[in-house]
Design a protein around this nucleic acid. Sequence first.
DNA 1: CGCGAACTACCGAGTAGTAGGTCGGCAACG
DNA 2: CGTTGCCGACCTACTACTCGGTAGTTCGCG
Lengths: 207, 207
Amino acid sequence: MAEPDPPRAEQRRTWRSPDRRDEILRAAFALFAERGYRGTSLAAVADRAGLSQPGLLHHFPGKEALLAGVLQMYEKIDAGRLFTGPTATTATETSLDRLAEVIEYNASRPDAVRALAVLAAESVTSDHPARAFFVERYAEFRKGAARALEAEFKRRGQLTSEQAAALTIAVLDGLHLQWLLQPDEIDVPDLFTAFLSLLRQRPIDNN
Amino acid sequence: MAEPDPPRAEQRRTWRSPDRRDEILRAAFALFAERGYRGTSLAAVADRAGLSQPGLLHHFPGKEALLAGVLQMYEKIDAGRLFTGPTATTATETSLDRLAEVIEYNASRPDAVRALAVLAAESVTSDHPARAFFVERYAEFRKGAARALEAEFKRRGQLTSEQAAALTIAVLDGLHLQWLLQPDEIDVPDLFTAFLSLLRQRPIDNN
DNA sequence: CGCGAACTACCGAGTAGTAGGTCGGCAACG
DNA sequence: CGTTGCCGACCTACTACTCGGTAGTTCGCG
């Protein structure tokens, strides 16, 4: 019954309920941020969205579908801002400063940051449904960042742009983790800017 | 069920437990690494340790106590290696290079890294029993790293030693996350060394 | 030495509670 | 009158945890 859906995947997908679906997704997003995927129950999401649990399952076939929807929603919202986009993004517009702006913006919405941080870390556990998503996301993220870095200051010292990209993303995630644990002690935008200034330095033995 | 209890603990079943407790803790550590704290059931830990679930609860009063035991065990094992130690560590011996060695060592035991990464990220969710542990751990970690950094090259450029410490730890955690998602793409020791070389560079406008 | 109380380690069976998911049906609407 | 949105009741599986009991060991005491 709920298994086969090859033909009806295209046009009739959204029916007439995009509003309610979005409400549910927002509720799920908030709860995933607070308690993680495994720590969140469908009943809690349904309650937050103002309907019953079977009512929720009318919109999403299962919990994994909910998670998929949340991740997809996040992608739509945030993908445009960053160099995380598809391969054919205009390379000139993407830059590390642009990323720094996003980080500044993120400081005002810890819930979204927490959701992504929690889900990403959770996804490294075995059989986690978001694992593929994050593997792909990080790969693309690194590729985009490497491109941006290359455009901005080519090769510096011993660092390849791929290495710099991995480090940049690592700094971001690591700072966010510390910030989520101790919001008052960690100023993410400030620290990230400091890291960028490190990246822009010249190597000690060159020129 | 499927295990007929092959190595039934030699002959002497170590009166007064510590062996059995350690077995249980090791099983719990491994499972927390695989599935996280919330994703791990007491029954699964008990099964892995070769006893029943009530048998496990004979050694630990509850699941939180198990987690506490695991974290305590980790602290005992790893605290000595790092500058995470108490305030009165010999400052001369602590260094970033020493940290780099630990990172190299950690590359050979992804399970331990995964356990800490997963538990740390999980602990940012509300009401997580490990939260206090990680808040304290990171605060101490930063303090120790800041001291080591100060000793090694005082103040560099715009970076205070506290900022450098937060960045260093962030790089570590972030790299580990990427590595756990894509082990073949990320060389943590290599990237960390690259980051250290960034830290050691001179500021662009100085000297 | 022997014997039984005390203690440790453990298990079988069960507790209440919660999880994700199913089923049948009801109401509104185009 | 079928599609869409939703709910109450229910199901099964699993959760952490409890209870009562039973081996095996140690030790006090005669």
